[in-house]
Amino acid sequence: TYYTVKSGDTLNKIAAQYGVSVANLRSWNGISGDLIFVGQKLIVKKG
């Protein structure tokens, strides 16, 4: 599943929405910090 980042989104918010961990979101998307951008597509695997 792909999720497109919207204004106001955070990794924590997206992780909670999908029932996954922030660590997994980072791993699946090659993100090291907490910086995400509006319009960015993130890979999300269902929890």
Rank of each mutant, 00 (worst) to 15 (best):
N24E: 15
G30V: 08
L25S: 00
K45S: 15
F37L: 10
G8L: 05
Q17G: 07
Q40V: 05
Q40G: 04
V38G: 05
A23C: 13
D9Y: 01
K46T: 15
V44Y: 04
A15R: 02
N29D: 00
D9V: 02
N24M: 13
V44T: 06
G33D: 12
V22I: 12
S27T: 14
K46A: 15
N12C: 06
Y3K: 02
I14V: 08
N12L: 15
G8Y: 06
N24H: 12
T1R: 08
I31F: 08
R26W: 04
V22W: 03
R26A: 08
K41N: 10
W28C: 03
Y2N: 06
A15F: 01
Q40E: 08
N29H: 01
T10F: 04
K45M: 14
D34P: 05
V20A: 07
T1W: 13
L42I: 11
T1D: 11
G8M: 06
N12W: 13
I14M: 03
Y2G: 05
G8A: 06
I31N: 03
K45L: 15
S27R: 11
N12Q: 14
A15G: 08
K46L: 15
S27P: 01
L35P: 07
K6P: 01
L11Y: 03
G33C: 05
Y18E: 07
Y2V: 09
G30H: 13
L11Q: 02
W28Q: 04
T10I: 04
Y3N: 01
K13V: 10
Q40D: 08
R26K: 12
S32T: 15
A16N: 12
D9G: 01
Y2S: 08
W28E: 03
K41A: 09
K46F: 14
L42V: 07
S32I: 13
K6R: 10
V44L: 07
S21F: 05
V20I: 12
G39P: 01
L11D: 01
N29L: 01
S7Y: 13
W28H: 03
F37D: 09
N12P: 13
Q40P: 01
G33P: 03
T10Q: 06
V22D: 05
V20Q: 08
I14K: 00
Y3S: 02
A16L: 14
I14N: 00
G47H: 14
W28S: 03
I31K: 03
V22G: 04
V44I: 15
I36V: 09
A23F: 08
I43K: 08
L11R: 00
G39R: 03
G30Q: 11
T1L: 13
V22M: 09
N29Y: 01
T4D: 06
S32D: 11
K13N: 12
K6Y: 04
D9Q: 02
G8K: 06
K13Y: 12
V44P: 01
K46D: 15
S21A: 08
Q40S: 06
Y3R: 03
K46H: 15
F37S: 10
V44S: 02
Y2R: 06
N12F: 14
D9W: 01
T4I: 11
G30M: 11
R26C: 07
T1M: 15
G47F: 14
Q17P: 01
K45R: 12
N29Q: 01
T10R: 05
Y2K: 06
V38R: 06
A23W: 07
V22T: 10
L42E: 00
